[in-house]
């Protein structure tokens, strides 16, 4: 019993919170980014449209793992580069010295002297940005497709009533497109849940890291020696991820009934019939 309450185990339990926090932060951020991306793709301004298309096709075409490595490193070094220029203008040594990336101590971000939790939070924040960036592109495509699925006649009717483009967009297009976007979004959500073990690549100690670390066989150098218990720890993860899937399916089912209300779709029709 003492075994399951070691500090190391509480770090394992805590890491479930980290995964949930990542999901809770990434999902809305990716949704927002995706919405903006979809708007950009539909924009009347050519340059904005290009930015939207480049963003989505670039992320979709390049392996995710490259982005998960690239975004945090680029962002981290970018921030330190800017801070170096501002805080240490008189340092003449180059920042790139051979293989090394060297900025002055004051430009380190977070500062080298900062507590470990600051470093961890920073790493977590970078991970969130990377996840949001990648998933935002997929969301953008899903939403763009959903917007195209809204019957054009309805939009024309809106224009005929004298609504502006903006009004048509917000009052007719957006409320209706959710119903079409939802199946795609629920897919993305599931993929996002499954992608969380990639956190360890970004230096965040997530559930998979701890399960591997705790389950790995322990010699008597440790307080509680044991054999290879990874199977049991991974079982716990299996249950966790299954529960997540089960819960999210329930939520998405509710959402899709909610958004189907009043729609010119089969599901919307069923709503009307149920009422009658």
């Amino acid at each position: 019993m003492c075994y399951l309450t070691t500090v190391k185990h509480s770090m394992f339990y805590w890491s479930f919170g980290i995964v949930l926090a990542l999901l809770a932060l990434t999902a809305p951020a990716a949704l927002l980014l995706g919405f903006l991306g979809a708007m950009a793709k539909r924009s009347q301004v050519a340059v904005v449209r290009w930015i939207g298309s480049i963003y989505t096709s670039m992320v979709r075409g390049i392996p995710d793992i490259i982005f998960f490595m690239f975004v945090p490193i680029a962002l981290g070094q970018g921030i330190e580069y800017v801070r170096h220029k501002i805080k240490c203008p008189d340092v003449t040594e180059p920042i790139r010295q051979g293989n090394d990336f060297v900025v002055c101590a004051a430009a380190k971000f977070p500062l080298g002297s900062a507590d470990q939790w600051v470093h961890q939070t920073y790493g977590f924040a970078l991970a969130t940005v990377a996840f949001a960036f990648v998933f935002g592109a997929f969301v953008a495509n899903t939403i763009d497709g959903a917007m195209r699925a809204v019957p054009a006649n309805q939009l024309e009717t809106g224009h005929a009533y004298g609504m502006t483009r903006r009004q048509v967009f917000w009052r007719i297009l957006v409320p209706q497109m959710w119903s079409y976007a939802l199946p795609g979004l629920s897919n993305l959500w599931q993929i996002l849940i499954k992608a969380t073990p990639l956190l360890f690549l970004l230096g965040v100690q997530d559930v998979v890291y701890w399960a591997r670390e705790l389950g790995g066989s322990k010699t008597s150098r440790y307080e509680y020696p044991h054999g290879d218990w990874r199977l049991w720890y991974f079982m716990v993860l299996l249950v966790f991820y299954l529960l997540m899937t089960w819960g999210s399916e329930k939520v998405f089912r509710r959402l899709s009934t909610r958004f189907a209300r009043g729609q010119a779709t089969q599901a919307g029709q069923q709503h009307l019939e149920a009422k009658a």
Binding site: T6, V7, S10, M11, E213, R221, Y222, E223
Partner: peptide, 26 residues
Amino acid sequence: ERTVRIGTEGAYPPYNFINDNGQVDG
């Protein structure tokens, strides 16, 4: 006092490992 961050793997006893308190040991 310069702060020095030391990186280790934490999975190679007796060189370095994570003990039951979650600390680097070895």
